[in-house]
Design a protein around this nucleic acid. Structure first.
Lengths: 340, 340
DNA sequence: TTGAAAGCGCTAACAG
DNA sequence: CTGTTAGCGCTTTCAA
């Protein structure tokens, strides 16, 4: 035999569809059909193929399938950070809904860094995902262009982005700030301050908070800025700073529950009466907010629900259901507990 | 022209390598080289190609690359759950290390369910990842077989699995239980109990705990079992159960910090003195453990470090560095704080 | 240093 | 209902 068929590309060594076909005595296409559209194959044929699949332990190469077909059945998820973070809930919600539908999640973290976000998004788009979920707005215009050029369904979450790329599932961060401000005003607090990170969502919360205070004829004290992602330690530090300054502050709105709880614990340590001497409110309504002693006043946001709704939206968009870009506002709800 | 070249497969419409090649006036292979092994291409050629890439906004199709080449540059991560979980740290550590090396993370959650784990692993292996990280032992033998047959580097984490598939990065859960038991004994607690889930890691902690107690001549009280994943609520419920039973329990070891903190908060609510009336210890040393009032005695485990080490191991294995299967025990360290 | 062929493993028409 | 054919977009030899 002339070695005309020199193997150029490197075979994987794993069983291929053709191996299954040979064992089952059918053609390769039939195997493909059994795996993808079983109803289009006669029952006996189908069983023979399934049996062959089992015997040789065949695991379909989805990469080859994605290349040949149109769909990759991959959904990309881009979050700022996943550890100790409320975004983990959103990823969970997304993945819970999607796994059952045969999708796999590609996860990436930006660490609130525009450069990292850009290279991350490039890498993810290189996998040709069928859709992509992103927390908030892109950190840079470059990332935004990449995303728009990808021509796949995209859902931005956690904020009602003003100029969304495509779909949005979130809530108004400004409204969240507003309800807390109005609550503080109603409770009679007069020297109130915002504590949060420098990221867009935090800034939006602050803007809504400040605006509502001004509308009530009050002047918000200067905000305290902490690093993102927020930690218990940052919340504690912020509280210390406020206390050290010795101003008249009587209520603090923290951009996240984690920050608020960090501060609340420091108050416990110092024996500062909450809300007697200082009122504290957070955002997120994590489990811990309800369980704290005293339980924390907060704005309820379900990260899980955001993820689920985002998944539903993407599933619909992939299937071509629904018309244009959806814009789902989950709303905000103040949970009044004992710290205010 | 005879329509011999009917387009059977569906083109994506996105720019391809060939488009870049045409614009740059080189062949397709040269573009591939510029992107993968830039040093193998003359500088002027390289620049022309890069410029063309930029102009048409070319994003390489990594799926096609993975199929043609051997490596997918995908690492699969299988965790029980990601929300409110210490495993999120491990995923973060893994992803932090791997993203810089050009890898993308495929994330999947088993929800502590063997069936879900199996289909998840099948789906992931279908993507032909270059390596896979798994928390603990497979939930079923079927999954174990799938994994072993995949013939890719695999690292199991969070426990020193007895018969590992390949590499292991973790600690001895039994040792963790033991150090807590010894600490309880040394402190003079005599009526101690374990609280944890029904999962393997929790059971191992309990076994180590019970064994050390018996070695000290004590008889552990019956363990309290809670659902996995553990929540603050489960910790609280467990405490209530113990209290309702009205036994002589004077110290509780919770399988995770979350459970311990749930219980600790309930103690605060009920005005139960900790450790005066009841001692509490957890496992994980999460931020919150240190910040609690009083700060929680716990076993220090760095989920982040586990993820990082797992990533390093996989990177080495993919590159063919190191010899056989590694087995890294990160050890356990008791952090004595104020709850015991 | 560059290019031409020959696949990687699968799906999508198309025909029978 | 089943098989044949022609790619998906890229990476590899191998040769120049």
């Amino acid at each position: 035999m002339k070695p005309k068929t020199r193997t150029r590309a490197v075979p994987t060594g794993r069983p291929r569809m053709e191996d299954v076909a040979r064992l089952a005595g059918v053609s390769l296409v039939t195997v493909s059909r059994v795996l993808n559209t079983p109803d289009a194959v006669a029952a006996p044929t189908r069983q023979a193929v399934m049996e062959a699949v089992r015997r040789i332990g065949y695991v379909p190469n989805l990469t080859a399938g994605a290349l040949a077909g149109s769909r990759s059945r991959i959904i990309a998820a881009v979050v700022p950070t996943i550890a100790n973070s409320i975004f983990a809930d959103t990823v969970q919600g997304l993945s819970d809904r999607l796994e059952g539908e045969g999708y796999t999640i590609l996860l990436g973290q930006t660490g609130y860094d525009a450069g990292r976000e850009r290279s991350l998004v490039t890498a993810m788009l290189g996998r040709r995902p069928d859709a992509l979920m992103l927390v908030g707005a892109p950190l840079s215009a470059a990332t935004g262009r990449l995303l728009a050029a990808a021509k796949i369904p995209i859902v931005q979450t956690w904020e009602m982005v003003r100029r969304p790329i495509d779909h949005v599932v979130g809530f108004s961060n400004a409204a969240a700030g507003r309800v807390v401000a109005e609550h503080f005003v109603a409770r009679g607090y007069r020297h109130v301050r915002f504590v949060g990170g420098a990221d867009a969502r935090s800034k939006a919360r602050q803007a809504g908070f400040d605006a509502a205070l001004r509308a009530a004829g009050m002047t918000p004290l200067p905000a305290v800025t902490v690093p993102s992602p927020g930690t218990l330690g940052h919340g504690r530090d912020a509280l210390c700073r406020v206390l050290d300054e010795g101003g008249p502050t009587d209520a603090l709105f923290f951009s996240t529950d984690v920050l608020a709880i960090g501060a609340l614990l420091e108050c416990q340590r110092r024996g500062i009466a909450v809300p007697g001497r200082l009122a504290i409110a957070g955002l997120g309504d994590q489990d811990l907010a309800r369980e704290m002693v005293p339980p924390l006043t907060t704005v309820r946001i379900s990260g899980l629900e955001i993820g689920r709704r985002a998944a539903d939206l993407l599933l619909d968009a992939i299937a071509g259901r629904r018309g244009g870009a959806q814009r789902i506002d989950l709303g905000v709800q103040l949970i009044e507990r004992a710290t205010t």
